[in-house]
Amino acid sequence: MEPSITTTRSIVRYSLEGAKEVEDTIASEYALTIKINGSELMTMVCTPDYIEDLAVGYLVSEGIIKRYSDIKNMRVDHKQGFIHINSDRLNPLYAKLQQKRYLTSCCGGSRQGFVFAQDALNTQKIKKQSVQLKPEDCFFYMNQLQNSADIFKQTGGVHNTALCNEDGMMLSRMDIGRHNALDKIYGYCLRHELSLEGTFLLFSGRISSEILLKAARIGCEIVLSKSAPTERAIELAEELGITTVGFIRNQSFNVYTWPERIG
């Protein structure tokens, strides 16, 4: 049985009118351990939906496997919190990677990731500019992301992201972890062989360097966020040819890199 993505709890809510006991909706927190060929790779704290997509997106974006077809079989044990994956086409550096984990800047340090100094060099630069957005498009798509964020409206405890192309929003995902939401998007695209040409990304949270690299590996030309990018993310976006747009709120926004794609 799949775990629930939300739960309810009786709380005391205070306001200027006083206090009252109410039922509140809370985002669930689920510990998922990825096991490859019987060995534990890592444990991430996530929202328990689209678990297969999450695992596939993580493994490919981190370079542990090259493509979805590298996985021979995959099985989720919801009760124990494991996803069992078998593959005979792992990155040759896999054994070394297991010894070089470190905490990323993900929310609360909920996952340990494999991030390399040469990641930017190994990530292909996006040279094409097939995506062009008008300023009003940036506001429109960000409003669309926020309006579709039902679990966030209920709990206030998740991040939201969406993949778009010129026809509109292709799919959206949410998770308590920013990285997880993006891996769910990427994993779904890989498993269903969706075209990633001419895509851009909507994001509710901070654009960190890890998020920027994941967007680059997907092939997104633009990243739109209601929050801020970090200095390293801006540097990487400049190097990799990605347009970064932040602070999309109150009828204004900032374009940090490659402004040619906006307006």
Results as ranks from 00 to 15, higher is better:
M142W: 02
P3T: 10
R89E: 07
V158I: 12
V115M: 08
N37F: 07
K66Y: 06
D88A: 08
N122C: 07
K35Y: 11
R191D: 02
T161F: 00
Q80S: 08
N160C: 13
R191A: 13
P92G: 00
N165M: 07
G63E: 02
K72T: 10
I34E: 01
V60K: 03
E62V: 04
Q251D: 14
R101L: 14
V245Y: 06
L121I: 13
S110R: 15
R101T: 10
A237E: 06
G81Y: 04
I234C: 06
L202G: 03
S4C: 12
K153R: 11
N73Y: 08
H159V: 11
S195V: 03
Y50R: 14
M1A: 11
C138H: 00
T257H: 08
N254W: 12
L133S: 00
P48K: 06
S39F: 14
H84K: 08
I36V: 12
D183W: 15
A95D: 12
V255G: 00
Q124H: 04
A233I: 09
Y94W: 00
L97T: 00
V131D: 01
I34Y: 11
K184F: 09
F114A: 05
S148A: 15
N122L: 13
I242L: 03
S61E: 11
G63W: 09
I126G: 00
S148G: 09
F247G: 06
Q80M: 11
I83L: 02
Q132I: 14
